[in-house]
Design a protein around this nucleic acid. Structure first.
Lengths: 191, 191
DNA sequence: CCTAAACGCAACAGAGTTGATGCAGTTAAG
DNA sequence: CTTAACTGCATCAACTCTGTTGCGTTTAGG
């Protein structure tokens, strides 16, 4: 389910596909309504070349969303959500996700077709996130009474907000530390 | 600066303008690239009528953004940010803003021209927000060491996140309470 | 080296959007 | 009541975007 293994693309063709996807991310994140022409120009490619690989505009966007979802899933997995100590996992995952989400902001914001592989990946990532929060709660890092679904939404929002005002230190680890700290303690005085 | 007081519109014309602005919010929040035709249909008005009041598409969007910014500013002011006890002001402002932002999500998300009156309003709102946070800090509700600029961004993000998953209780006061609580304490165990 | 894949370029039709105009009918307001 | 404002409707030109096709050229890969 997903990509057809039809014929392995020639090396130069594969490079073109990558260039197109990366250009699409750049252009569409600046203007979601940008034309195929603009994307092609940014990719250093003729517009017809895009249509050769992606029949419809939507097909390009779907491919973009899928590619980004896979990278995000890999970033989460790299944080060892099931085995590392919860606080360590939380920090690593946060730093990883910040990098991926910074590079693929548009692609990850596309409303995914519920049937798509991308949607399935996002669902699994969401479940993994809850798992980490549960493990953190078991370690008394999170209150017993906390609403984990709300906690996850807040966590997502903190990630998104951190990426918007990007004139920061830009060190992913520093930013991740701030996110985790805010998530766990808020801004009240420490007791 | 802002609206021309040229001629007071006739009563029915003013109703049309309102209908157009409200329809534009509905339609554009669902699809930012929607056509004038769709907006006109949603407003129960001919497309040419829109063009009579708003020369360009951009003029309509600007007017929409300005209208929403004014309502938002009024919502903040209604919370008595300078005089009410910080916690009360924070709660009231949050509940007010939730309602306004829920009704004008698209209009408030439009990137405002730095020269525009809307941008000035948003800046002033931002300053007011910092003021409330400072007063909260003076009352020991917020840690001395807290970064208020980051706190404000988190506050904005919590507002936005609360509005996305709108299948909630929908009671603004309950939602506001959760936002303020999360902002001040996060999800860690209470001391 | 040789073939098939891949590319750029040019051109095309079809659809959709924008903004403007003229006109005839309706409605608010003095 | 009378006028001026307002509206709907039909129509127009100009533009943009999409998706497709054909052709000559370049390039990867066996």
């Amino acid at each position: 389910m997903g990509e057809k293994a039809a014929r392995p693309l020639r090396a130069d063709a594969e490079r073109s596909v990558r260039a197109i996807l990366e250009a699409a991310e750049r252009v569409l994140s600046a203007d979601p309504g940008a034309s195929m022409e603009q994307i092609a120009a940014a990719a250093g490619v003729a517009r017809t070349t895009i249509h050769r690989r992606f029949a419809h505009r939507q097909a390009l966007i779907d491919a973009l969303a899928l590619s980004a979802a896979r990278q995000l899933a890999a970033a989460v997995d790299d944080g060892r959500p099931d085995t590392a100590p919860p606080l360590v996992a939380l920090h690593r995952i946060t730093a990883n996700v910040l990098e991926v989400k910074g590079a693929w902001a548009f692609a990850l914001g596309v409303p995914a077709d519920p049937e798509s592989e991308a949607a399935a990946l996002h669902e699994e990532i969401g479940r993994t996130c809850i798992t980490v929060l549960e493990r953190a709660r078991a370690d008394r890092l999170i209150a017993e009474t906390a609403d984990l679904l709300w906690a996850r939404r807040v966590y997502y929002a903190l990630l998104g907000e951190t990426l918007h005002g990007n004139t920061d230190d830009a060190d992913p680890d520093t930013l991740a530390a701030r996110i985790v700290d805010t998530l766990l303690h808020g801004f009240g005085p420490r007791g």
